[in-house]
Structure formats: C-alpha cells, structure tokens
C-alpha cells in the first residue's frame, strides 16, 4: 500500500456507512442461498468485497484494514475446518456429508438446516480466503527490479 493514509475523507465516511450494509447483504445472500439465488460462494465474495473496500479506503497499515488482515488467514482455516466438521457430523445420519439436521417445511429458512450451515461455512472460507489473497497482492511492497538478477 503506497499510501498509508488511504483515500480522501469522503470515501472514508461513505465506506464507514456502506461497510456494514455490504456485510449484511453478503450474509443474507449466503443465508437464503437455498431458497433464492445466491449461496456461500456469492455471499463469500460479497463479504470479501466489503473488506477489500475497507482496506482500499483506509489504507493497508492503519485503520481496520490491518486488524482484518491479521485475522483473515485464521478465519480461512476456520471456514475449511467447520465445513469438515459439518461433513463429519453427517456420520450421525449415515455417511460423510449426509444431511444430519431435522428438515422443516419447504420454501422457509429452516427447510434444510444442514445446507444453511454448509453455506455459512463456505461463506467464511471463500470470504476470508479471497481477502487474504487480496492482501497478499495489495500490500506487496517489492520495489520494481529491487531483486534484479544478472540481467541489469
């Protein structure tokens, strides 16, 4: 991040307003992924977008960006692990990745709790993973040609 101050005051204030809204939108897209278009992948990417916006507006080394960056890769692992745990819970109903939770009425949020939980695990995994990847590219500070080999 060449500019540790981030962007102008206008962008920062708008970001502060929009950040929570984008998060909630991503969460809703993932949460209702089994009855409406969306799901863990779309929701996770939207959540990653919110954090990307925050890190671009506030700068990489200061503000919330730095705090998020520290947590991103462990959240990534948490998402993968919770997907696995949910998959193993399927053994209580018969086999790996089997639906283990009681199912409700069709067309409602509770119609299939295990798929909802899997969607949320994917959201965590994809969101944190993509954000960690973005940080790696955005915060990279290699100066041009600073590691030049023999070609000079």
């Amino acid at each position: 991040m060449s500019d540790p101050q981030g962007m102008s005051i206008v962008v920062r204030v708008v970001t502060r307003w929009l950040f929570g809204l984008i998060l909630i939108f991503g969460l809703a897209v993932a949460l209702f992924g089994h009855v409406t278009p969306g799901g863990g992948f779309a929701g996770g990417t939207i959540v990653a977008c919110a954090f990307v916006l925050a890190i671009l507006a506030f700068g990489g080394s200061r503000g919330p960006g730095a705090a998020f960056a520290r947590w991103a890769s462990s959240l990534d692992a948490t998402g993968a692990l919770s997907f696995l745990v949910l998959a193993i819970l399927g053994y209580t109903a018969g086999s790996f990745l089997h639906q283990w939770a009681a199912r409700g009425e069709l067309f409602t949020l509770g119609s299939t709790p295990s798929i909802v939980l899997l969607n949320l695990a994917i959201l965590l995994k994809v969101g944190a993973g993509l954000f960690a990847g973005f940080i790696a590219v955005a915060v990279f500070e290699g100066a041009a040609g600073s590691e030049k080999g023999a070609d000079a």
Binding site: F140, G145, K148
Partner: peptide
C-alpha cells in the same frame, strides 16, 4: 498476478 509481480521484481521486465 502474484507470480507476475514476483517475476517483475526479479527481472525488472
């Protein structure tokens, strides 16, 4: 993109 940036850093081209 990560690989490209690394290559640019190493070769300057």
């Amino acid at each position: 993109v990560a690989l490209t940036l690394r290559i640019y850093q190493r070769y300057g081209s």
